[in-house]
Design a protein around this nucleic acid. Sequence first.
DNA 1: TTCGTTAGTTCAGTATATATGAACTATTGA
DNA 2: TCAATAGTTCATATATACTGAACTAACGAA
Lengths: 117, 117
Amino acid sequence: MRPIVHPTPDEITVEGILYALSDPVRARIYAQLAEAACARNCAAFLDIAPGGKPLAKSTLSMQMRILREAGLIRSERQGVEVKNTPRCAELKEKFGPMIEEIMKAYQKSEGKKRGRR
Amino acid sequence: MRPIVHPTPDEITVEGILYALSDPVRARIYAQLAEAACARNCAAFLDIAPGGKPLAKSTLSMQMRILREAGLIRSERQGVEVKNTPRCAELKEKFGPMIEEIMKAYQKSEGKKRGRR
DNA sequence: TTCGTTAGTTCAGTATATATGAACTATTGA
DNA sequence: TCAATAGTTCATATATACTGAACTAACGAA
């Protein structure tokens, strides 16, 4: 199994971030990590998809990899689990309020969806 | 030839916007439109790709379609040409400063690339 | 050490999306 | 009616993403 690699702040690109966050599932995962005070393992997100249908483990694994390789999260093995944390400080340093604004926009649109029902 | 269609503000989604802007070529097209005071036809963007290699007309046509269907631009036939304008006001109304922040981040990263040479 | 369990990754096949040259369409002007 | 211009659509090659099945790594118990 290949070791977990992370991009340095230099290697993180705007397009990579936008692509990673252009999937609602990945955006929700990042949102939950950014809100939570503590690290979360991957399994915590198995039921994150709207509609309650659980994600395949392999799908989730790939989504986490995309988030990681985009530079949004940091993943570290701790025993059998992999703990994920958002790279908020580095991202804010590099991109200013961009990512926060994206998450705000998502929040707003989710709110509307719920309200419309 | 099918008529040109645009999403209503309601139909514009965060994920669609992020996806459309996650391609540097599309992001540059949008940036130029947002800066320019006037509408631009498609052909104006044939040489937009970094490296000077011109885009195929069919490729550009598709990129414009993705921007249009995401809700970022409005395209209107004027004679033989199609005039494109950014939907800045509607987008700002719906997404606040998100898109501006994205464009700022791109600007900054392009600046760095040029500076590094 | 070996076995079982848990958590996650990789593989392989399939499905979906993107890029582009060639052919086509719409509009204008001669 | 014909030619020119500006884009679009089509067909096909290539690349990416999704998912079940098989695999691996870490740990605890016997």
